[in-house]
Structures are given as C-alpha cells and as structure tokens.
Design a protein around this nucleic acid. Structure first.
Lengths: 329, 329
DNA sequence: CTGAAAGCGCTAACAA
DNA sequence: TTGTTAGCGCTTTCAG
C-alpha cells in the first residue's frame, strides 16, 4: 500500500497524509480520519521514498574499529542515547581494525546515506583527512584530536602523566612502560608523552629496555611483561597504556610470584569495570568514555542543524582512581 | 550530481550507468568510459533513490537491549562479521532495556527500512510475537528460544545443570542460587531449571532462603551475596546465572573474608574475559556468543534469499571452564 | 547489448 | 488550510 492508496482509503488527499507525517499543517477532522485509517490498514510510509525527496535520512553513520571493547561500547552507548532521543538511528560499521573498511565506509557515507558521521578511529592518514574534508555531511571524531575537524577527545597525556607521577611520588625509581601503537595519537603517542613528562620532571632517565609496545589485549600485555621482567634491570613500577594490558601484566606477575604492589606497582589508563575485580585491584585513570559519546553526538546534532565553519575540539578531563596496585607504603 | 548529469558527463546513457552499478550487462567500452568519469567527477549513486525502486535496502536491523555488555557485543561482532562480508550494513537500535523501544523499533522496521531483522531481547510478550509475525521481512531471534520463529540460542539449562553438578560432585552439600529475572527464559528460567535439575538428581532439597534473583550486574550480585551470607544456613557453593553476578559475589567474599573455594565454591555461566582475571579465577560455562551471532546472521541471510516456511531453532552447546573458584580438594 | 521512457512512493511548490 | 502536480534519482521494462 502506498500513500495514494492510503489517502483514498482514508478519504483524504495525498498531501493531507504527507502533512500528517511531517509538519502537521492539518485540520483536526482529517487528522482523525487518517488515524482511523492508519489503525485499520496498518499503512507505513516508505522511508526511502521520503528520503529521495527530502534528503533527510534520520540516520547517523558510526564507524568503529571493534564492537567488543568496553571503552568503545561505552562511547557508542552515549552516542546512541543522545541520538536516539532525537529520533536518529545508528548505521553502524564495524571495521574490525581494517584500515580499508574505514576508508570504504567513509566513501559509503558520501552517498546520501546518512545525515552525519561519527568516527572512532585510532590511526589517521592523509586519506582519512582528505575524505573527511570531502564529506558532504558533518563529521565528528571521537577519541582523537585531529586538527581542522570537530573532535571530542580525552586528555591522554595528562592521564598518563598523572598516573606515572602517582607511582613516582610513592617512591618508584625504576619505571617501565608498556604502551600502544604510537601511530595512535591518543592511546599511543600522548600516553607515552605523559609518561615521559613525569619521568623528566622527576629527573629519571628513561630506560629503553623497559619500554614495550603492546597490542590492545591482555595476551599482549602478558607477553610484554615477560620481556620486561627478563631484563637485567628490574622495574619497580609499570605504566600500562590500557587496563587490558595491565590485566595481562598482572596475570604474568601472579604466575611468576611477583608481588603487586610490593615488588612492582602497576598503573593504567581506562578504568574498565574489570580493574577493581582483578586479584589486585588496579589503579587506573578514569576516562569519560560515555560522556565523550554524548558530547560527540551533541556536537553532531549541532552541526547537522546548520554547520558552523569553526571547528571545535573538546577535551574531556580525567579522574585518578587509586587502588591497591599502587598502594605502596 | 545525479545519474542523468553523470551519464552526460561520461558520454553514455542513463541506463548504461545504472547497469554499471547493478547487473553489469554492459560493453567494455562503456564500462571504461564510466570508470573514467567516476574518477573525475566523484559521482555516487543515491542509495535511497535506488531503494525506492528496487526495494532493497542492504540494511539489517539489529535490536539489542544494551551495548556495553560483553556477551551482547560478542554476538553483535559475529553478526557484523557475516553480514558485512555480504555487503549489508547494520541499523542498530539500542533499546536500553526499554520494552517500549523494543516494540517501536519493530514497528519502525515494518516500514521498508531494512531487509531483515535480528532481535536480541530478553523477555517476550504477546505483543512481540504479534509484531514479529506481522513482519514483512525475515526476523531472527538470537539468545532466546521462541517457538514459531527462527532462533539461535544456547543450551542454558544444560549449562546451569553442568556447572551445578560440577560443584555438587566436588562435595558441596548446601548450594545457593543467584539467578536472573525468570521472565527471561534463557538466563532466568532455564538456568534456574538447570540448577534445580542438578539438585534433584543429587537428592538435595532446594533451600528457598538461599535463592536470590539479581540484576545483570556486579553490584546486584554483591548485594544478593550479602543477603545469602547473612542467613543462618551457610552455603558451601553458589551458582550464579552470570559472570557479572559472580564477580559481585566474589567482591563480597573478599571483603568479608570468606575464602573461595575453601569456604564456598562459586560457579557461573557466561565465561566472560573478566572471569580468569578475578582474584580467584572463576569457573564458568562458556557460551558461544560470537558463534550465535554468526549463525543468526547466516540464518537471516538464508531467509532473505527466499524465506522458507519452516522455522528453525538452532541450539548451541557449551563448554565448561573449570578454574580455581570450584577447585576444592 | 542499448536507450527511451514509465514509474517507484513520497514531498513540496503552487494555485486555489 | 487544502488538493494538484511536478519532480526527487534511480531501476526496469520494452522496443529496438
């Protein structure tokens, strides 16, 4: 059944029906007629036909590197909360960390499929930048700072700095570092910089043999812990770029009878739910992931109703959550 | 730029362009011309206009109760993997456990917005059933068994039975139970039934004072543990419907100096990543969440290319993961 | 294999 | 306020 047939069935004109579903510039009489007919026929206007004319999809494309990550799903939850309340649906693309899928989704969204885009990517290339600026709809980047674009991000540098400083202040002298891919400016580069800043301030020289780059997984953290603890120099604290990495380190410590925090303190960034449940509760920096999603969505909403030419970068601050893993006397 | 303008620019007819993007019934000459023009103009066909005519959206609606849950995100990951490979995108609706949003999304999908639907719901009402049968596109239910519909589900009863039996076989005599909402047939009712079956087989009578219903959260598990441990009768094993609940119970035990597994064994269902990291590694039943997503998506794919009138219910089996929380001598 | 032309179902401009 | 009608951009007959 289409709008013409339905209008006939309801005894009103086609435009009355269209108005009913849109602005509502309509007499009460017709409104009632339409509602009655709606009840009996179960008619539903076609979304795509509407979109062809109006150019409004009521869809927001969300591109993310994976689904089964706590931080990402918290961001997504925030996004969906705000956008859902405004009647937008999410067109989700899980790139599975595949760079090509990231690019192709951006391409995909250039066709008039969505009214806006939210991008959660970890590594940005020139191709990203060029596609993003060619975008015909507003785009917001969440979790990363990309100059010249609208972003909501965390203070990764500050977070890493504060956590490292916390451990140094407690007396750690030989810090180790397990970081993330440095091409990832947030979790990789900035957290590294924060770590280094704290060391520099404390006048401690960075020992390269105690620095490792891990993947975003517990397994990888476990493996890198193994490398670090088999060096001659033994660290008395380890800064981990993510909670997952820290969890892997802890697993290694437990299996190898390395006491936390007595032998080694462990501090991380992310404050996942898991942290407080670990066999030694993990000190971590809380980042406001859900808030980032909420703010990103709001920013997008703003851009979609009249985009401004001024780009905004919103940086969210952090909270340090101190638990036993850094509780040295 | 639309297809007419683009066709002109490429020096071919409109239908040639359309064919290029569809079946490809086209001479090499024109194909080349089109590709060249594509390069220079950056033309992209409009998705919605295509959909109006062809009735194909290449979209699958996924309705889920929350995003930030490990089991749900694993299911979604499986879905997205299979569907993504077939060129489908996901239209995601996060109902935030809101029954009304579940219903309204089902309504939404009745308009020709999607080619198929995957529903992850926990509680089914008659309204669900009626909307599902009115659906014009195939729908698959994942994680629950709903007679008369296509489902992919887990053997929740068996899982709970096996975990409980494991603990009883190790000598537990006073089992306690912390379950989920019984209206949830999978995680609530069936896991309860499995627990009861194991007790019945062992000739142990169920003590109602040692049975609690928790929400799907650690906090709730913590609270219910408090209720149970303040009864006169002290349990020597606790079956928890989910890992999150078990984590809360463990937290309670740690704070109250109740030793695991010496004083009380703990077994759960779900086998989340967190389980092995808890201060006492948690015995849990592994359910194949990602596989459920994969199989659900495959089933949907099948239905979308010619739906059969026969409904299928696929039940996935489980693996018992034994860790220290049930390691009594 | 090709192009012209008739819609798909809806919205929006326009005239009433 | 209302109804008529010309498109939106594309696909798909149909006749060549």
């Amino acid at each position: 059944m289409n709008i013409t047939e339905f209008a006939k069935a309801a005894g009103v004109s086609v435009s009355a029906v269209s108005r009913y579903f849109n602005d509502g510039y309509l007499s009460e009489d017709k409104r009632l007629k339409i509602e009655a007919a709606l009840e009996s026929t179960g008619y539903m206007p076609s979304y795509s036909a509407r979109t062809v004319r109006s150019k409004v999809t009521k869809l927001v494309g969300v591109i993310l590197p994976k689904l089964s990550s706590e931080s990402i799903s918290r961001v997504t939850e925030g996004i969906s909360e705000v956008l859902g309340a405004e009647g937008f649906e999410l067109l989700l693309v899980n790139t599975a960390n595949d760079y090509n899928r990231e690019i192709s989704s951006l391409e995909l969204f250039r066709q008039n499929r969505v009214d806006g885009v939210i991008l959660l990517a970890s590594v940005f290339t020139d191709l990203h930048r060029s596609l993003l600026s060619k975008m015909r709809v507003p785009a917001i980047i969440v979790g990363q700072k990309l100059m010249g674009f609208n972003c909501v991000c965390h203070n990764d540098l500050g977070a890493a700095y504060s956590m490292t400083k916390l451990m140094l202040d407690k007396g750690a002298k030989v810090p180790a570092f397990i970081g993330a891919n440095p091409e990832d400016n947030a979790a990789g580069r900035d957290r590294r910089l924060g770590f280094e800043k704290a060391l520099a301030e404390a006048g401690i020289e960075l020992d390269k043999s105690l620095c490792e780059i891990a993947k975003f997984s517990m397994e990888s953290g476990y493996e890198k812990a193994g490398r670090i603890f088999t060096q001659k120099k033994k660290p008395d604290c380890i800064f981990c770029a993510t909670d997952n990495i820290a969890a892997g380190v802890m697993l290694y410590c437990r299996e190898n009878n390395i006491r936390i925090p007595d032998d080694v303190m462990i501090g991380a960034v992310g404050d996942s739910r898991m942290g407080r449940l670990l066999y030694v509760p993990l000190s971590s920096v809380h980042l406001h992931y859900k808030t980032a999603g909420i703010e990103g969505a709001k920013m997008l909403l703003n851009e979609m109703k009249g985009s401004s030419s001024v780009h905004r970068i919103m940086q969210l601050e952090y909270d340090i959550i101190e638990r036993e893993s850094t509780a040295r006397l």
